[in-house]
Design a protein around this nucleic acid. Structure first.
Lengths: 249, 249
DNA sequence: GAAAAAGCAAGAGCAGTGCTCCCGTTTCGT
DNA sequence: ACGAAACGGGAGCACTGCTCTTGCTTTTTC
């Protein structure tokens, strides 16, 4: 069962897997996901293409590894953004988080497309990506939990949810489970909070998709300012008056 | 210059172009965009692969034709939805529009991915798609124009925009131009309206992207209800009390 | 109406892809 | 030390987009 990686060969293997992923990411950045060629990666590494199949059973498996790495990267960026703004007003924290994710997306557009664009054909999201995805979701939920919830400044519909049957049951149980695993108190995780959080989330990634995939071409001039205005407006709907980043100051 | 399409051959050509697109769309639906094979289309049509190059100079040109068709399809669905709800409350109209677009997206996921997912590698959105894109944008703007604007029921920040420099200058001028071309009065097209409209739009397509590309897997159970709740909530932020579709009725 | 021009389909062929199999070699666990 | 497992290389299969040449048909021009 538990095979102990004894020495030289295991180390070399891990090193080579890293090299493959590094070369693949470089190629990803220059040509995109569906033009990513195993043979080109092999050439880059000065190795026969068949050799790569000792490390990744197929091209899709290699892509899966890149996807998992990408999820973890963006989750790192998001967690760092939230951690660096502890104690600040909610709208400001949200903006910093959104800008961190956008910065990551702009810097690595092809990796963003890999995980948030259309999945490659006949390719089902592998279950091993579930963990990093949950990291990202949890980052947002924790921000909501520490932010407008504490101050109870949102509109009434946000605090007191209407009857929405069981639409949010699953996401709430997931969130509560994750919160408790981290020792946090999941109190106040109402349907209203979840609705608002998912709304922010979908708007953020919808915006990024539009920006990165060209839907805002010929519509927007200053993408940075445009993004900031949209994100601040979205956040202020939840916590009006909490902060005014671009306002008179 | 103006070549008169003289009879038989021109008709046969148009017919064959339609056949190619039809076969390509069928293949698109079953295997996805980047696995769309010119040779397979040729086989399907019982013709040599080289023959297709008389009609489409490259695979990308064929994809461009499919993209343009897809844009027009979704614009048709959107316009029909808005037209069929004239006079109804804004939130209801928005929900019908959103559900029409979602219905189209679910029915033709690969075509949705083709235009709203990550663009195929090294492929820049061709300028001939600008017109159908504008049709869709205009449909939303006209709905906003006829809806919450008339009743002036939105929150104060929506009616009286704060100073947002020139972030929305370009989209506003585009919208005004399009409105006037249709004989509509572009009055009231404030930054607040544009902000809110783009927010709705990005949230809608962010939601659809998440749903179609698997981000909501293991998070949501009833996708229909979830979508409705999210969209109604988003719209009611602009026109509170305008309608309550899922509420006590 | 005949000749020239243009449109058309087919086939061979090129360079590239993912992937498999088999080969001889190297390293590992025992 | 020995058998087993892991390894890298090369050849090869089926596939892709695309080009070029060859012959045929339709259209245009004189």
């Amino acid at each position: 069962m538990a095979s102990k990686p004894t020495g030289v060969r295991a180390r070399a293997r891990a090193q080579f897997i890293d090299d493959i992923k590094r070369a693949a990411k470089a190629q990803l950045r220059s040509v995109g996901a569906d033009s990513l060629s195993l043979r080109a990666v092999a050439r880059e590494l000065g190795v026969a293409s068949s050799a790569l199949y000792r490390y990744f059973p197929s091209r899709d498996e290699l892509l899966t590894a890149l996807i998992t790495d990408a999820y973890n990267d963006v989750a790192d960026a998001a967690e760092a953004a939230v951690a660096s703004t502890a104690g600040r007003p909610f709208v400001e924290r949200w903006l910093v988080l959104a800008q961190a994710i956008r910065g990551w997306a702009l810097d690595r557009a092809h990796e963003f497309a890999l995980i948030y664009g259309s999945p490659v054909p006949g390719y089902a999201a592998p279950p091993e990506t579930a963990a990093p995805v949950q990291r990202l979701t949890l980052t947002l939920l924790r921000l909501l939990h520490e932010g407008p919830l504490e101050h109870r400044v949102g509109p009434a519909a946000f605090r007191a949810p209407p009857a929405t049957s069981g639409a949010y049951d699953l996401v709430r149980s997931l969130a509560e489970e994750a919160f408790e695993a981290h020792g946090d108190d999941p109190v106040g995780l109402t349907d209203g909070v979840l609705r608002a959080g998912i709304g922010l989330w979908t708007q953020l990634f919808g915006h990024l998709g539009f920006e990165l995939f060209g839907q805002f071409q010929n519509v927007v001039v200053d993408f940075d300012e445009f993004f900031e205005v949209q994100m601040v407006e979205a956040a202020e709907r939840l916590a009006p008056g909490s902060a005014t980043v671009g306002g008179p100051g």
